[in-house]
Write a protein that binds this DNA or RNA. Structure first.
Length: 327
RNA sequence: GGCGCAGUAGCCAAGUGGUAAGGCAAUGGUCUGCAACACCAGUAUCCACCGGUUCAAAUCCGGUCUGCGCCU
C-alpha cells in the first residue's frame, strides 16, 4: 500500500440490508457512479458452485465492474470472519491502489462490523484437539457443566451467554484456554475500537411484508432456475451437511429431501421460512449498529432516487474518488 | 328436513367442573474465528354466540349460528 497518509484516508462505502432487499442491483449503480469496485460481504457467495441458492451475481451481469470475494472458495473449504477480514483488507488495498473506491456489499453484519472496526480476533494456531475435548465434555457432562466451568473462569461472559448456547460457551472456554485471557475482557476492549476507515454504511430496507413476499417469490424463482439440481450435484460430490458451505440457506434444507425424509414441497417451504427468519435476524443486527444510514425503499420513488441520496451523503462525508488526492 | 360429530390465539392443538399445556407462525432480542450459525424472550382477562345450573363452567343443560359426516 502506497497511500500517503494513514488508513483514515481510505474511503469505504458499505451497502447492506436484509436478504432479497435489492442490494446487488443498487451496488452496481453505485459502483458505476463513484468508480468503485465491489467486495462481497457474504458468507456464502464466496463459494464456487453455489450460484443459484446464494442469488449470486453472474459474471455477465457485472457490467465490467470488478467483484471480489465472489466464487473464490471450494465448498469444502472453511470460511470465517478472520478469513473474510484478511481477504477483504487485501482487496481494499488493491482497489485503492488502482484509484478506485471499495464498496462492501452484502448482508453478513458480523463480517461487516469486523472489517469496518478492524476487530482483533487474536489469531491462534488451530487447536482442534481442545475443541474436540470440550465437545466430548459436553456429551459426557452436559451443557450445565460446561456453563459452570465458564462461570468459574469468566463469570462476566457466562452471565451474558445462555447455557443452551453451547457453541458460544465452547468458544469462550477455548479462548480462555488458548490465550489465558477472558473473552469478556477482550470483547470489552474491542468494543472501544474506532474505525480506521472514512466510511459510510448504508442499510437498505423496505416494508417487512413486502420483503417477505419478495423472498417467497425469489425462492420460487430459484427453483425454476434449477436450484434442486445445483444442490444435488454438490450432494452427489459427497459434501456433508456439517460443512460451513452446506449450512447455507437453500442448501441445508435439501439434505432431508435427498435422504427421503421430506417432500420437495416441504423443502421449498422450509427454505422460504429460513430465509424470512434470516432476514429478520439481519434487521435486528443492523438496528443496533450505531453509525449507520438507513434507507427505506418506500421513501423513494425509485432506485435512481436512492442512489442520488447516497451520493449526496458521500459527498458530505468527503468520500469521493481518491485518485487526485493520492498523487 | 332428521340424526351424529365438531367449533379453544394467525394456524395446529391439550384441557371434559376449580380459575387456559404445547408446537408452528408473527414480533422483539443476544451475538467479537462455525454468523445464511447458534441462542433467548413475550404473545388468549379468555375458549362460536345467547341464556341457564353451580360457591365455581372452555368444561354440565337448553337454544342459536357455522362446518363436516350420515340418513331422508
Amino acid at each position: 500500500m502506497t497511500l500517503g497518509g494513514s488508513d483514515k484516508d481510505i474511503p469505504l462505502v458499505i451497502l447492506t440490508g436484509p436478504t432479497a432487499v435489492g442490494k446487488t442491483s443498487l451496488s452496481l449503480r453505485l459502483a458505476r457512479a463513484i468508480d468503485g469496485e465491489i467486495i462481497s460481504a457474504d458468507s456464502m457467495q464466496i463459494y464456487q458452485k453455489m450460484q443459484i441458492g446464494t442469488a449470486r451475481i453472474l459474471p455477465e451481469e457485472m457490467e465490467g465492474i470488478p467483484h471480489h470475494l465472489v466464487a473464490e472458495l471450494d465448498p469444502r473449504e472453511e470460511f470465517n470472519v478472520v478469513e473474510f477480514q484478511r481477504r477483504a483488507r487485501e482487496a481494499i488495498h488493491q482497489i485503492v491502489g488502482r484509484g478506485h473506491i471499495p464498496i462492501i456489499a452484502g448482508g453478513t453484519g458480523f463480517y461487516i462490523r469486523a472489517l469496518v472496526y478492524d476487530t482483533d480476533f487474536s489469531e491462534h494456531d488451530d487447536q482442534e484437539s481442545y475443541r474436540e475435548e470440550l465437545k466430548n465434555l459436553l456429551d459426557r457432562e452436559g451443557k450445565e457443566y460446561l456453563h459452570q466451568e465458564l462461570q468459574r473462569l469468566d463469570p462476566e461472559y457466562a452471565a451474558t451467554v445462555h447455557c443452551n448456547n453451547t457453541k458460544r460457551v465452547i468458544r469462550a472456554l477455548e479462548y480462555y484456554h488458548e490465550t489465558g485471557e477472558k473473552l469478556s475482557a477482550h470483547n470489552a476492549a474491542q468494543a472501544e475500537r474506532v474505525s480506521p476507515y472514512r466510511f459510510a454504511c448504508f442499510v437498505l430496507d423496505m416494508d417487512r411484508s413486502a420483503l417477505y413476499d419478495r423472498i417467497d417469490r425469489r425462492v420460487d424463482q430459484m427453483m425454476e432456475e434449477g436450484l434442486e439440481e445445483e444442490v444435488r450435484s454438490l450432494y452427489e460430490e459427497g459434501l456433508g451437511r456439517s460443512l460451513v458451505s452446506m449450512q447455507g440457506i437453500g442448501y441445508k434444507e435439501f439434505f432431508d429431501y435427498f435422504e427421503g425424509s421430506c417432500s420437495l414441497e416441504e423443502t421449498v417451504e422450509q427454505i422460504k421460512k429460513d430465509t424470512r427468519h434470516f432476514a429478520k435476524r439481519q434487521l435486528t443486527w443492523f438496528r443496533r449498529e450505531k453509525e449507520v444510514i438507513r434507507l427505506n425503499k418506500e421513501d423513494y420513488p425509485d432506485e435512481e432516487a436512492i442512489l442520488r441520496k447516497m451520493l449526496e451523503i458521500l459527498e458530505e462525508k468527503g468520500i469521493t474518488a481518491i485518485d487526485d488526492r493520492q498523487v
